[in-house]
Amino acid sequence: MPHFKQNFRNLSYANITTAPVMLVTGSAKRIGAAIIKRAHEKGYRVIIHCHHSQQQAKALATTLNKKRDNSAAVIVADLTLVNDSQTLSQFTQTVIETFGQLDILVHNASRFYPTPIGGIENTQWDELFLTNAKAPLLLSQAFLPYLKAQQGCIISLLDIHADNKPFSNYAVYNMAKAAHRTMVQSLALDMAPHVRVNGVAPGVNILPEADSDQALDSTQQQYIVDSIPMQRIGAPEDIAHSVLYLVEASYVTGQIITVDGGRSLTLAGGYN
C-alpha cells in the first residue's frame, strides 16, 4: 500500500495556472516552511511534503490558499517509500497530478542526531542515510523526466560540517551529508544541460527546538553567537532567499552556497 496521501482543496485541472510548481520535502515547519512561503510570495504553486507534521502542513497550506486559491497542496509521505519502486512511482505520479507539472525539487527533509562511536547501530545508519542521501538521489531520478520537460532544477539543503569539517559524535550524519554534497555535484553533470542541480549549506541558521533532546541553554547559545563573525544566529528566511536565488539563476549549476554568517571561516571541525 502507498505510504502517502494528498490534502488539498477544490483542486481541478480547470483551476491550474501556468505558474511554476515547487515541491519541498519536509516543509511543514522551520526552514522548509520558510522556503515554501518565499516561493509562494514569488508566485509559485507549492507542494508541502510532510510525514509526522501533518497539522502544521495543513495549516500552512490553508494560509497560503487563502492568499491565492488552489496554490498550495499537502502530500503526506514516509520517505522510506523510495525503498519500493512501485510505491516510489505512485508517489511520483501523485506529485505530478497535483498541479500537472513539477519545476523545482527541493531536498530539505533530514534527520539529525548524534551517533557516538562505539554505539553506532544499523538502524541509525539506515535512517540517517535514507533522509540525507538515498531519498534525495532516488527522488531526483524519479522526477528527472518531469523536471527535464520544464527545464527545471533541483536544490539540496546540505551542511557546512559536510565539507571537511565534521561535527564531533555525528559520524553517520556527517557521512550522509557528505554523500549528499557529492550527489549535487554528480547530478549537476549527469542532468545537464536540461536540469540544474545546486545546494545550500546552512551554518547555525536555526536552533534545535526548545523541547527537543538537543535543546541549547542560553550559555551554549551565546557561545555559538560568539563564534560567528556576523555575531548572530541566522534565520530560516536566509536559507529561503538563497534557494530562490538558485531557482532563478539560470546559468548556475553544480554550486553550493554557504549561508552561515561567516562561521565556516572560523570552523575547525569538532565543536569549535
Rank of each mutant, 00 (worst) to 15 (best):
M1H: 10
M1Y: 05
F8E: 10
T18F: 13
A19I: 00
P20H: 10
M22S: 03
L23E: 05
T25D: 14
K29R: 14
I31Q: 02
A33I: 02
A33C: 08
I36Y: 03
A39G: 13
E41K: 03
Y44S: 00
R45F: 08
I47V: 12
H49W: 11
H49A: 10
H52T: 06
A57T: 12
K58M: 13
L60N: 05
L64D: 06
N65V: 08
K67R: 14
R68L: 14
N70G: 12
S71D: 06
A73C: 02
V74K: 03
V74M: 07
V76K: 07
D78S: 15
L79P: 09
V82S: 01
S85R: 10
S85H: 05
Q86L: 03
Q86E: 05
Q86N: 09
Q90R: 00
F91G: 07
E97K: 05
G100I: 13
G100T: 11
H107F: 00
A109I: 05
S110L: 01
S110H: 10
R111P: 01
F112P: 04
I117K: 01
E121C: 02
T123V: 15
D126H: 06
D126T: 12
E127C: 06
E127Y: 14
L139V: 04
A142R: 08
L144I: 06
L144T: 13
P145D: 11
A149I: 04
A149L: 07
G152T: 02
I154V: 04
L158E: 13
D159Y: 09
D159V: 00
P166C: 11
Y170L: 08
V172I: 15
K177I: 08
H180R: 09
H180V: 07
T182N: 02
T182P: 00
V184Y: 00
Q185K: 10
L189F: 12
D190V: 04
M191H: 02
P193Y: 02
V195D: 03
G199L: 13
V200A: 02
A201E: 03
P202K: 12
G203E: 06
V204D: 00
I206M: 05
I206H: 07
E209T: 13
D211A: 08
D211I: 06
S212F: 09
D213N: 09
Q214T: 11
S218Y: 04
T219N: 07
Q220A: 06
Q222L: 08
Y223S: 04
Y223M: 11
I224G: 06
V225W: 01
I233G: 05
I233K: 10
G234A: 11
H241N: 12
S242H: 14
V243D: 08
L244H: 13
A249N: 09
Y251R: 11
G254R: 10
I256S: 08
G261M: 10
L265N: 04
A268G: 12
G270C: 02
N272S: 06
N272P: 03
N272E: 12
